[in-house]
Amino acid sequence: MNNDNFDAPNLPLVHTARLWQNEQWTAQVIKNEDDDGWAVAMFKEGESEPALVGPWTMGRDKKNPKPLDGAAFITLVKTASEFVRRSEQQWHAQLNQSVTVNGPDGRVTVLLRIVPDEDNPYAMLSAQDESGDVLAAVKVAAAFKLNRQTAQAWVDAEWAKP
């Protein structure tokens, strides 16, 4: 079975005292600009900014950083991956909201999906009945605030653009 994404034969695997890299992550020990200590920056493959930066332990000489090793790298990858996953979940939650209110024929779920376009951000406001059928949809400003009151007002106004 050929799995090029997993094997990544063209990417070198680096394991030095201050730099470890696998196919998806790079851990780099850097000088902490805020004090005399050290930090470790975790870069996800293809990203120019670190996904996570945290303190790093001093070595025995109390001047140089402790060398990276396999166990530390695995822990750093898990921590950085979890941080990225949580950030993505939070971003998704900010862009996709829903509220359920009373409609004329039962419960209505009002959804707001924000489209974060750099030049012209907007949002789509839609309503679904209890079986998931779309009752209405309208384009609104990206700054539209969805809550129970605004959702109920839209339903009560029979889908007139808010």
Rank of each mutant, 00 (worst) to 15 (best):
W38C: 05
A151E: 07
V155S: 04
P65M: 08
R18I: 07
A151S: 08
M124I: 15
S81E: 13
S48F: 13
G37Y: 08
S81V: 00
T79Y: 00
K62D: 11
V101A: 07
P50I: 09
V53G: 08
N5F: 09
E130W: 04
S126W: 04
N147T: 06
N120M: 12
V99G: 03
L76P: 03
Q152F: 06
F144L: 11
V140T: 11
V77E: 06
K44H: 13
A51N: 11
M1I: 08
L146A: 05
E118W: 10
D133T: 13
N5Y: 10
A71H: 10
E158I: 09
N147K: 05
D119W: 13
E49K: 15
R107C: 02
R148M: 07
W38K: 05
L135T: 05
A153T: 13
Q97C: 03
I30Y: 03
Q94T: 09
N22F: 02
D7C: 02
A160L: 10
L76F: 08
Q97T: 02
N102H: 07
A27S: 11
P121Y: 05
A27L: 10
N2H: 10
P67G: 10
S126A: 14
V40N: 03
V84T: 13
F43M: 04
I74M: 07
N147C: 08
E118C: 00
Y122K: 05
A39I: 00
A41Y: 07
L68G: 05
D105A: 13
K139P: 00
E23S: 14
A142M: 01
T79M: 08
W91Q: 15
D133H: 12
V29R: 05
M124V: 15
A137I: 01
A157L: 04
A51R: 08
G103C: 04
N32L: 01
A39N: 14
P50Y: 09
Q21L: 07
W91P: 00
P65Y: 06
Q28F: 03
S131T: 14
P55G: 14
Q149N: 14
R85E: 14
Q89S: 11
Q21W: 01
V14H: 00
G59E: 10
I30Q: 12
Q97D: 02
G132P: 05
W159K: 01
A151L: 09
W20K: 04
K78L: 10
S131R: 12
N147W: 03
A151T: 07
A27E: 12
V99R: 08
P9V: 04
P121S: 09
K161L: 11
A72E: 10
A41C: 04
E158K: 12
R86G: 01
W20M: 14
T75Q: 14
P55F: 01
A136E: 07
K63C: 02
V110G: 07
A8M: 12
L135Y: 08
Q90V: 13
A93N: 12
V53S: 10
V29M: 03
V138E: 13
P55N: 13
Y122C: 08
H92M: 09
G46E: 07
E118S: 11
A137S: 15
R113H: 14
A151H: 04
F43N: 04
K145C: 04
E88W: 00
T16Y: 03
H15S: 14
L112E: 07
F73N: 08
L11M: 11
V40C: 12
D105Y: 09
M42V: 04
M1F: 07
D36F: 01
